[in-house]
């Protein structure tokens, strides 16, 4: 039975939502505020957005982020899909152990991951660049994709694979003609999740980035040292728009793949 909420409960929920979303709403609002200071409303402006688009280093950071997050997402999806299909198709010694190893990078504190990756690159004499950022991002993005695809595979009826084989598919064709097409929604939603994780990461990236490879999140972080500038509000607002859009797309894809498997 569903009951109606009493006034106390409504108040609690409202308070909760305000605490949760007020900072974001404030930030979005101030990105349109015609004032240098974050105090009081002095009229609507798009000035900060114009300034932001004129700033060369901001532009560069965006491009860097797109390259880094794009590459690490694609790599993570491919590696995650291979790993998940391997886990689905074969039984081997140490499977459970390997399974839990895949999750460790996602739960290790980002700073520790950054430090350990930095020392690894140092030992291997790999100079820091976009490549090292991408490698680092893949370490925590791949498990996300792997997990997403694995869940989709667990719900996949094995007799469909047998039916494919029965109708003439070789083992490889079962994967290419039946498994992969059905995994597209899971791969996309996993990829989008990985992309957002990669886009917003500061801590790990901070350790492994080369001097010229400032990503968007690092740029925002760096700008904060010089004090709160309204352009940062503008940039953060754009970032929120992008991540929320990706989140919504991901949700739709997931719902669709759930509906499909029913």
């Amino acid at each position: 039975m569903k009951r109606k909420l009493g006034p106390a409960s409504v108040f609690y929920v409202l308070l909760f939502l305000i605490l949760l979303y007020a900072p974001i709403v404030m930030m979005v609002a101030y990105s349109f505020n015609n004032s240098e200071l974050d105090m009081g409303w002095s009229g609507f402006t798009l000035r900060w957005y114009r300034e932001l688009f004129a700033a060369e280093d901001a532009k560069k950071a965006v491009i860097n982020s797109i390259i880094v997050s794009g590459c690490s997402t694609v790599l993570s999806v491919i590696l995650g899909a291979f790993a998940a299909i391997g886990f689905h198709k074969f039984d081997f010694k140490g499977k459970d152990l390997l399974d839990s190893f895949f999750y460790i990078p996602t739960i290790v504190p980002a700073m520790l991951l950054g430090v350990s990756l930095l020392s690894l690159f140092d030992i291997l004499h790999i100079s820091l660049s976009k490549v090292t950022i991408i490698i680092s991002h893949v370490t925590f993005c791949m498990p996300i994709c792997f997990n997403n695809i694995r869940v989709a595979l667990n719900g996949f009826d094995r007799s469909i694979e047998e039916a494919a084989q029965d109708l003439g598919c070789t083992q490889l064709q079962v994967i290419t003609k039946v498994l992969l097409p059905n995994l597209v929604p899971a791969m996309l939603s996993g990829g989008l999740l990985a992309f957002t994780f990669s886009l917003e990461d500061v801590l790990t990236t901070f350790f492994v980035a080369g001097p010229k490879d400032t990503t968007l999140s690092m740029y925002i972080f760096g700008q904060m040292k010089a004090g709160m500038k309204p352009t940062i509000n503008a940039l953060s607002t754009l970032l929120i728009v992008v991540t929320v859009t990706l989140g919504i797309i991901m949700q739709i894809l997931q719902n669709r793949s759930i509906a499909k498997s029913k």
């Binding site: 047998e162 029965d166 109708l167 039946v178 059905n182 499909k260």
Partner: peptide
């Protein structure tokens, strides 16, 4: 895949895509 027999499964096992 090389046998000249085909199977009809209890849960149909149609290709959803």
């Amino acid at each position: 895949n090389l046998r000249d027999v085909n199977t009809v499964f209890q849960n149909y096992a149609l290709f959803p895509h």
